[in-house]
């Protein structure tokens, strides 16, 4: 199934070459866990700090859960960042 995959800040370079700015569409197995995807795109797990599915934070403990994504979900990841 297809999902929208977004990598930001220092992780942006790890996106596949079809990415526009920080956004790409990727194909993932229906039973994929977030860690499967994070590892596949060589995102160091310790830098996958802010992990959001459709804008909702996914804690570290849930990132091994298979089948957490649905078709057309948006997975967005940031390294540790802050501002204000």
């Amino acid at each position: 199934m297809k999902i929208t995959f977004k990598l930001y800040a220092t992780l942006g370079d790890l996106l596949p070459s079809n990415a526009v700015r920080n956004v790409s569409t990727i194909e993932v197995p229906e039973d994929a866990s977030l860690h499967n995807i994070i590892d596949k795109y060589h995102v160091p797990r310790e830098l996958a700090h802010l992990v959001l599915i459709n804008g909702v934070f996914v804690c570290d403990a849930d990132r091994d859960q298979a089948g957490i994504l649905k078709e057309n979900d948006v997975l967005a990841i940031w390294p540790p960042v802050a501002g204000g």
């Binding site: 930001y8 800040a9 220092t10 700090h49 940031w78 390294p79 540790p80 802050a82 501002g83 204000g84």
Partner: peptide, 15 residues
């Protein structure tokens, strides 16, 4: 990682 890398590289605008 925030104060050592994130803020100098991207500033607060990363938000």
């Amino acid at each position: 990682a925030v104060t050592g890398q994130g803020l100098p590289a991207y500033g607060t605008q990363v938000l």
